[in-house]
């Protein structure tokens, strides 16, 4: 069977995305000194976190987030709410909108 990339997997799922209001915030520069072994990269089931080796920053895209909450727990900075890091639910009914669940 053909392997699928994350963008193809997520394209099967419905999102009502608020492009301008990320519900999860990280500090891409501060992520250079990650105390959590960049666990977000392997632990996010939507692969929203990617380490940009060339620029040494963590990139995060809230569009496509499945709102599971795993990053909130595996990332020590999100967990403790360190400065520049926060985790909320999307507002006004936006975000992942399951059709089957």
């Amino acid at each position: 069977m053909r392997r699928m990339k994350i963008d193809e997997l997520l394209s099967a799922t419905t999102f009502e995305t608020d492009e301008h209001a990320p519900h999860i915030v990280i500090d891409p520069q501060a992520c250079r000194t990650c105390p959590s072994g960049r666990a977000c990269e392997i632990s996010c089931p939507a692969q929203r976190y990617r380490w940009d080796e060339a620029n040494e920053v963590m990139t995060f895209d809230h569009v496509g987030c499945l709102e599971c909450g795993n990053c909130r727990l595996v990332c020590d900075r999100l967990f403790t709410g360190a400065e520049g890091y926060s985790w909320d639910y999307p507002q006004n009914g936006s975000g992942v909108t399951y059709q089957f669940g």
């Binding site: 069977m1 699928m4 193809e8 997997l9 997520l10 099967a12 799922t13 089931p45 939507a46 499945l66 599971c68 909450g69 795993n70 727990l73 992942v96 399951y98 059709q99 089957f100 669940g101």
Partner: peptide, 13 residues
Amino acid sequence: VAGGELVEYGAHL
């Protein structure tokens, strides 16, 4: 599941 159409992908704790 071979040949089935993927109609949703999701995650939950």
